[in-house]
Design a protein around this nucleic acid. Structure first.
Lengths: 244, 244
DNA sequence: ACAATATAGTGTCAATGAAACACTAAGTGT
DNA sequence: ACACTTAGTGTTTCATTGACACTATATTGT
């Protein structure tokens, strides 16, 4: 059996887009008194795990991702290593280590990976009943330094969103320009002008209208588009901000 | 005595600017046969060290920096954690581990920090005779995965250079606009138009001309400028590319 | 004193990209 | 047929970028 490395973990910040909100996948951490079985506290953690000897950081992140979402080959990018001394040091964390996980090291470096999934593809998982989506705008209490990690992931996400066309990783395969605009507004926290937005994106060769429209909507049906990485790679220009 | 964590190290990529070249500080690694004392090979490493139990990543990076340059409070930014399995796996690295460092783990995650120093302030150090500056354009053979680490540091440096006024960290306190332009040209690998450059930078309130000029130069003496972080923080605009 | 040399320092115009803004089109439901 | 709802479309103004050439001021050598 493979052995875990005590001092190194990865944390995956799994983002999804649903119901016009940016969401993140969290797992409840219940701390029970081992004797009385009473619940001492509850909070939430990001999706993390220690790495194994002989396992790279990226492999570990992919393992966690596969385990929690069932998905492979999804967008994954390392954004920061966290190595403060106080990152596992809150009162709750101390109680948790004492009661639930007495053998864990108190000096763990974690490497944060942010990943983007099409939330439609993530099925509710019976194996992980404590894991679910939370809106970025309505977060519960988080364990360890995960509030810090999540905020850094968010800033990184926004920064990448401006420079690369990664929004599509959060959208279904076919989508309308309205969906796309909403996504960019929600993630970047700005209001975009419809005409300017459409003018800009319809110049992008890698946004391809397909022969398919919305159906059964009580308004003019919107054109569906798909995104092509191939075309993007071939046509991208130097110096391009995806959305201003 | 503090104990080192086997599986985690930091590497500082220390950049300097001298003689119109971007330089990086490297240390020679000589691998001798322990029996015959013959030199098996020589190559160069970045400035790294394992972290101690009870020491944060950033503290470790600052320790390495202090040790190698004598400087504190200099620009330091984490840019990536490296955790591939083959990062210590070249033939040279295996020989080195076998002959010189038999007890080191073969699974070490390293966290890369890039730092910028005014190379005038770094005195040649008798304690580290094997450590010296190398031009980015004329690098020797590097140990481990340090070629990869250095290239990533360089890309990060360029990216930060475009968004934040960190060039000054590499310049002396007072400098001419010509020096500054050359620095930006060298780091970004572009040719800049003198008039456009000066037009742009003289709009920056945080670039302050001082009552001092070049002396004893056989041409019109250039105005000296200083940079003010304070003014920058107060006057910076949203959405600003330092140099296009 | 003067010329040669070397770098410092300065302004305009054209092209491109960003931001502001209001109406018609095509479906569904009653 | 009419009300309702979201889709889809162009023009103008303003700011930013990029191209481009000459004068100013110091030193050095004659």
């Amino acid at each position: 059996m493979k052995k875990l490395i005590d001092n190194v973990s990865v944390d995956c910040i799994i983002f999804g887009f649903d119901n016009n909100e940016l969401k993140v996948m969290l797992t409840r951490r219940d701390c029970h008194d081992p004797v009385t079985k009473k619940l001492i506290f509850s909070d939430y953690t990001l999706q993390g795990h220690h790495i194994y000897y002989g396992e790279s950081l990226e492999e570990a992140a992919k393992r966690v991702l596969k385990d929690k979402t069932g998905l492979e080959n999804i967008f994954l990018e390392q954004f920061k290593a966290f190595g403060s001394l106080d990152r596992l040091g809150s009162d709750r964390d101390k109680l948790w280590r004492k009661h639930v996980f007495p053998h864990v090291s108190d000096h763990v470096i974690t490497v944060g990976y942010l990943s983007l999934v099409d939330s439609n593809k993530v099925k509710p998982d019976a194996e992980h009943p404590d894991t679910s989506w939370f809106s970025i705008n309505d977060l519960p209490l988080l364990a360890f330094d995960h509030e810090l990690v999540l905020q850094k992931a968010l800033r990184t996400l926004r920064s990448i969103f401006r420079r690369k066309p990664i929004g599509f990783e959060l959208l279904p395969e076919k989508f309308t320009l309205h969906q796309m605009q909403t996504l960019y507004e929600v993630v970047l926290g700005v209001k975009l002008d419809k005409r300017n937005f459409r003018k800009k994106v319809t110049q992008m060769k890698y946004l391809i209208p397909i022969n398919d429209k919305q159906k059964n909507v009580n308004h003019k049906p919107a054109q569906y588009y798909i995104f092509s990485w191939d075309v993007y790679k071939k046509t991208k220009k130097r110096k391009y901000n995806f959305v201003t």
